[in-house]
Computed example of a mutant assay.
Amino acid sequence: MSPKLDPLPPSESQGSGGALGYLRDGGLWGIWLGLSPLILFLQAPPRIPIYLYGSVDTRLETEGSKFTTALLILLGLVPAIVTILSKRMRPAQALPIATLAMLVLAVITLSLFGSASTGEVAKPLLAMFVFFLAIVLVSAEVDSEIFIRNLLIGYAAMHAGAAVIALIDGNFVWGRFMGRLGPNFWGAIAAYGLLAASVARQKSLFIAIAAVDIAVLLLAQNRSSMLAAVAGGLLIIFLAYHWATLTGKLWMWLAGMAGGVVMLFSMPVLLSQVLRIDDPRRGLDSGGTGRAMAWEQAIDVFEQNPLFGVGYRHHEQYITAASSAHQAYLATAADMGILGLLLYL
């Protein structure tokens, strides 16, 4: 029989010290991690139909956007300093992640050898800084449950807030939510935020964040993010079932059967209107909206540079069928070769 965990008292479950305590106990980290969508959205121009760009790459990455990204990363110094000043630090705890960080950093650096751009030096430097932040986070002596809960809630709330602002902005193309940064970006943001919000103990907070994220997933029509959210949700349900009481498990079975019946009858609508498998531009016969060709090109890039790849975040320069490989494993292999792929796995 699985051990039953006693719930924390309300004061302990939320941390101590009110708003300042929340920020100190993980909340500030969550706000920092969730800040990027809002900042990137505010500086991005509205999306327009792809044929008006004159090229496949619609990301419009500029020196300004690169600077903003670097600045956002450097802002992580704020929660790091707060953690160092307010928590007892145990650096020995971070030895495993420090070792992994050195390996990843070495692979990124090797992949960038031979790059003609001096600006590429910033990538391993920023990676080194991110690893420093991770080491600070892991080294801190904290109540893990409270800290992680506060971090995830802050992260999810910031994402939902950014999504609301983007929805109000109203950047849609052909009925699909673009939000200036693209449907794939917002689909991923919504999926991450939805799963992170599941730790919220206040039902009203979870419902509010979930409503925004589900709306974004549907409006962005990002199928991979929808499937990722479903897979993550099923994992969370499995874990909840494992710890549930007998009565709770019974209710979960009943809810699951009811959900299965609803899913069965709504399957035609889900396939046609949500997953859009019969859409001539995005359906099964569309070649993955050009992604099948992009995957082939990414494989070719990897085969020509199997050991170190063509450089971290450089494979996009070799893809002509889409803005990128649109597949994380292929992109990693093309960027950093077999060594980077092994670390990613």
Score class of each variant (00 low, 15 high):
220 A>S: 09
82 V>P: 01
136 V>P: 08
196 A>W: 11
340 G>Q: 08
146 I>E: 11
114 G>C: 09
160 A>F: 14
204 S>E: 01
175 G>E: 10
323 S>T: 08
260 G>M: 11
137 L>Q: 15
26 G>C: 05
155 Y>L: 13
267 M>I: 07
152 L>C: 14
127 A>T: 10
37 P>K: 00
304 Q>H: 15
281 R>I: 02
76 G>E: 00
55 S>Q: 15
15 G>L: 06
279 D>M: 06
304 Q>D: 15
102 M>D: 00
247 T>A: 07
43 Q>M: 10
332 T>G: 04
13 S>T: 13
203 K>G: 01
221 Q>K: 15
209 I>L: 06
146 I>P: 08
167 L>K: 05
276 R>V: 04
44 A>V: 02
152 L>G: 13
260 G>Q: 11
80 A>K: 09
113 F>A: 08
10 P>F: 08
319 I>E: 05
161 G>I: 13
64 G>P: 08
282 R>L: 06
288 G>P: 12
58 T>K: 13
77 L>T: 13
51 Y>V: 15
155 Y>W: 15
305 N>H: 15
170 G>E: 11
239 L>C: 06
266 S>T: 14
225 S>G: 03
318 Y>P: 03
149 R>T: 15
245 T>Q: 07
224 S>C: 02
17 G>W: 01
181 L>W: 00
121 V>F: 13
144 S>E: 15
113 F>E: 05
244 A>E: 06
258 A>F: 06
296 E>A: 14
193 G>V: 12
127 A>Y: 04
181 L>S: 04
306 P>F: 12
150 N>V: 10
101 A>P: 01
61 E>S: 12
174 W>Y: 13
69 T>K: 09
49 P>Y: 03
250 L>E: 04
70 A>P: 12
119 G>R: 07
34 G>P: 02
170 G>I: 09
121 V>S: 12
41 F>I: 04
243 W>Q: 10
323 S>L: 02
45 P>L: 05
107 V>N: 01
69 T>E: 07
242 H>N: 04
273 Q>H: 08
265 F>Y: 13
31 I>K: 00
109 T>R: 11
283 G>S: 09
83 T>D: 06
133 L>A: 07
163 A>D: 10
307 L>G: 07
6 D>T: 08
259 G>N: 11
26 G>L: 02
193 G>W: 12
195 L>D: 09
68 T>L: 13
136 V>M: 09
125 L>C: 06
260 G>A: 13
281 R>Y: 02
1 M>W: 00
320 T>W: 05
22 Y>G: 11
284 L>K: 05
67 F>N: 01
135 I>V: 14
94 A>F: 03
207 I>K: 04
227 L>N: 05
294 A>I: 09
279 D>C: 05
179 G>V: 04
230 V>N: 04
133 L>V: 09
82 V>R: 08
183 P>Y: 06
279 D>K: 07
139 S>Y: 02
77 L>A: 14
341 L>E: 11
